[in-house]
Design a protein around this nucleic acid. Structure first.
Lengths: 206, 206, 206, 206
DNA sequence: CATGAATGAGTATTCATTCAT
DNA sequence: AATGAATGAATACTCATTCAT
């Protein structure tokens, strides 16, 4: 029977397990990670793991929640600053922060993301989508001229998804042909060009 | 010891196994796919599978080879036509063909791509990278004005990777908020904007 | 990952597995012995076997170690008495003790020895060789006249190896033409004759 | 259905299979030898193997028969010469011939003997026992004084079995401490000593 | 006669999960 | 609360044997 951790010690244990989960994933890959690995890495017995998580999947889920939460809490405090920036700088800033998050703690999250199966399937990327949408919305509110673009949702979708994947792929490359700065700059340029181009298109239509 | 299929019957068996591999992957997911599943689906005994493939991974590899080969042989004959098109139309055309390939046979390849772990890691996406590079190179040769862009490699990288992932993600969504046409159009627009924008930038620099 | 048995219960399990190993070898022969046989015979689940032994071979190795240890701890306490005996009696005594060990627990060790492949190859019969050499050395020290024999190493080799194999072979015969007493007496006589004969030879050479 | 080889070609095939059996045993060991290995080595298809042998065991049996036959046909023509020799020389000669047989064809028979499980059990070593008994009987007939020994059967048993095993063990040692010549000489000396000693005993008893 | 393709019962081994202490 | 011992269903893979061609 899973218990809600009520004491201080219990909370620490739960956390240790999730941390251990990331470490194991990085070490042994997703298929090579066993509950025993995780328990050992967390410095507890297997039995104890099952005191706090009903099964292995729940540990994975907790890891996922943590990734999502951390992405959200990276973007949230950043938003006020981002929305005031010009698009080019905003994109670059966000990407650099994103990279920092992915590389933190021995690239824990990058490795997680690279391993994570079914990326395409998960419909519960929602919180991240939501915060990104918020960001877009607020950005638009600070830059009223953008509001005229009809294509905004499509373009956001592409830039966001394409950007995320390009960065993950790039960071995982053993012999990258581009520097990260080139990539970030390129994505930022692209966003700028798209905005300018779309704007111009709207102007011409009228 | 793996045997090379010498008789007609044997060739058919090998093929049936790879086909069954795709089916099983779609049905049970990558972790849920067992050698017995594959053998059953192929209508053969487990032993027969091992007559032609040294282990499970080799079946997976054969599937991968087939995907790569099919992508290549989709793009190759298309190239002459694409290079003559204007960028916007070229991108849209390519994306529609790509979708057709992904959705073929009950979305066999789409499901494969969605499942494929470590997509980011695989450095042996090479044949596909190569054919896409060829396409870019030939496109440039037919559109000399593009040659002036310094940013070409970066932009190709982003559009290609971002585009592939956006499409896969979109096709896998159960409740997409965009139509495929919107997505393809968006990517095409984006490519156009980037080209125009970069061009303008180069012009201004001079 | 193999675990070291820490609790009392675990130690008993490890022992039960090794015991079961001998039983299975006797019942099904070396090729017919499966890990499941052993686990069943030990009254445990297969998984438990693998908690303490990395693989089947390790169980076999543990059995081997036990045989070696038991042979050694049969001879060791016997040595002081043997070295004081006359050669004929010493050989007979040792052989009878050896038989007792081989026949113990339903001839567990005899059956093991009969099955043991590559007996000839194993260079790690060492502990047994060592204790036997010790025995010879100590025997010589108590019987200084023997020291004159040049041939000692050769003769020991022959008597020891030939004796061991003759006894194993004899005990395994379904319809032996000799009694064990005849065999043991014969080996003892032989040792005596060899000693006397070699001694005489040395005398004549001088 | 197994067929008796009636044609010339068929006989050659049967022989090739048995030869291949020895080769495989030497290469892969007894547990690593598969019917496919044997068929491949013999240069035929698996199916063909089963045309001549009902199952794998029959191939092994044929190998065994061949070993036995070869041992017998080594000793048989040698017997007339051996019986005329003095005991010491007879033993040495026989052992050297035995070694030659064991080492022939890349130590094929030695490896077979080292691998052969259950050596001790097989009661059908008979043909070899018989020819050796014949040898002893004929030897006695040529050396009438030996007939007085009561212990003859026991001593033969020990010398023969002990001798065979000592030689096999010695030839298989990677770092032997004795030369073969020392071993053979030692066994010959031993036989001589035993005969002399027993003779003397009989003399004293009278 | 010859073959090699097909087979599937059988084997070693793993690992998430349970539970007695 | 914590643990580690026990478990057994599940999995990848092997190989003697059969049989259609």
């Amino acid at each position: 029977m899973t218990r809600k951790p009520q004491q201080q010690r219990a909370k620490a244990t739960v956390d240790a397990i999730v941390q251990a989960g990331f470490l194991c994933l990085a070490k042994h890959g997703i298929e090579g990670t066993t509950t025993r690995h995780i328990a050992d890495e967390a410095g507890i017995g297997v039995g104890s793991l099952y005191e706090y998580f009903a099964n292995k999947q729940e540990v994975m889920d907790a890891m996922y929640q943590m990734v999502v939460a951390d992405v959200v809490s990276m973007i949230q405090p950043l938003t006020p600053r981002l929305v005031k920036m010009e698009i080019h700088e905003a994109v670059r800033t966000l990407l650099y922060e994103f990279r920092e998050l992915l590389m933190r703690d021995d690239a824990r999250y990058l490795k997680y993301a690279s391993q994570a199966v079914n990326v395409a399937q998960r419909d519960n990327l929602e919180p991240i989508n939501k915060i990104l949408n918020d960001l877009v919305v607020q950005y638009v509110m600070h830059h009223p001229e953008v509001m005229r673009l009809r294509n905004l949702p499509v373009m956001s979708y592409i830039i966001i998804n394409g950007g995320i994947f390009s960065v993950i792929r790039h960071l995982g490359e053993s012999a990258p042909m581009l520097t990260f700065d080139q990539l970030a700059g390129g994505l930022a340029d692209m966003a700028k060009h798209v905005m300018d181009g779309e704007m111009r298109k709207v102007d011409n239509e009228q």
